[in-house]
Amino acid sequence: MPGRLENKVALITGAGSGIGLESSILFAQEGANVLLVDINLEGAEKGAAMIAKRFPNVRALATKADVGKEADIKAAVDLAVKEFGRLDVMFNNAGIMHPADDNALNTEERIWDLTMTINLKGVWWGCKYAILAMRQNATDESKGLHPGGSIINTASFVALMGAATPQLAYTASKGAVLAMSRELAMVHAKEGIRVNSLCPGPLKTPLLMDFLDTAEKRDRRMIHLPMGRFGEAVELAKAALFLASDDSSYMTGTDFKVDGGLSSAYVTALGEPLLPPPASLVN
């Protein structure tokens, strides 16, 4: 039975760890050729090697890029098209949450600018060059390939509501990603280019755990989680797969929340986790 991304080409930024790495593996499992992009080339190369070993029917390549540099993003998209012939899925996932990001009084301008460059400009450039590439996609009915494609931009639950711990630049950047994604979705819908935002809740990934570096910070997040636990990166990868595939063919401009119920909660009782992660995620 063919996979949900059979014969398609996907480019994933921030693919050296966390959501990006898990998505790269899952997309390859579903039949996609994958370009893993990360500023940490070693992490991306390890992911590509893992994919090559597990899924010999697809190709996986790794390349280094700083998404805060437009030329790097253009080069990555050009590489995907050169090596694989087209681009069907662009997952603009790379981002930062700087430990010095705080409230309006304490956040330095350099932290604000760095965060905006990576989290917002990087996504804008990723969309720009993905759209240009997707416009060139030809129809190949024998392989189930069509013009257009799917762009997925990682936003956050904080794009929809305030965060319990101050992180002003991060929150503002993710709100902007959400708004930008909606507008791009409207502009390019008739071209067959779908643009959706993925809004993760708090995840047990290095990005968040490095930021929540005290028990107090972690408890302030946990109290708002109805499931009583942080999410796993692979749970977001499965949501990204849905948005990447034709299963979501009538979805564009959405904010796809995968947050353990956080955005629907008022407050929950702090205590022992209510539910452990599914065994399939931790074994």
Results as ranks from 00 to 15, higher is better:
D101Q: 10
V187G: 07
A100Q: 13
A133W: 07
L145T: 02
D210A: 10
P206V: 10
G162S: 14
A164N: 08
R182G: 14
R4M: 01
A163N: 12
H98G: 08
L274G: 14
V37A: 07
K143C: 01
A104H: 06
A71H: 13
K190F: 00
S173Y: 13
L21K: 15
K121W: 02
G192D: 00
K190G: 02
R220I: 03
A244Q: 06
H224G: 09
M116C: 06
I193Q: 08
V58G: 11
A94D: 09
H146R: 09
P166I: 01
E216A: 03
N57I: 13
E70W: 07
A52R: 14
G31S: 06
H188V: 08
L120G: 04
M209V: 08
A15S: 15
P226F: 06
I12H: 11
G201P: 05
S245Q: 05
G231I: 06
A164K: 02
E108K: 15
F91Y: 14
L184C: 15
V177I: 10
G47S: 10
T115E: 02
F256M: 11
R220H: 00
L225V: 05
D72K: 04
Q29G: 07
I152C: 12
M227A: 03
A10M: 08
D101N: 08
M251F: 03
V34I: 09
S248N: 03
L262M: 09
L241R: 06
T115A: 04
G271I: 01
H146C: 08
P200V: 13
D72N: 13
A44F: 06
E42V: 12
R4T: 05
P200F: 01
R86N: 04
G149I: 10
I131L: 13
V258G: 07
N137Y: 05
S263F: 02
I96T: 08
T13L: 08
R229P: 11
T171M: 14
I19D: 00
E183Q: 13
K46H: 13
L262K: 12
G31E: 01
N153G: 09
A28E: 07
K257I: 15
F55G: 13
V267L: 09
V158N: 10
D140Q: 08
C199A: 14
G126Y: 01
A71E: 12
D88I: 12
A155E: 12
G3Y: 11
M222L: 09
A130I: 10
L145S: 08
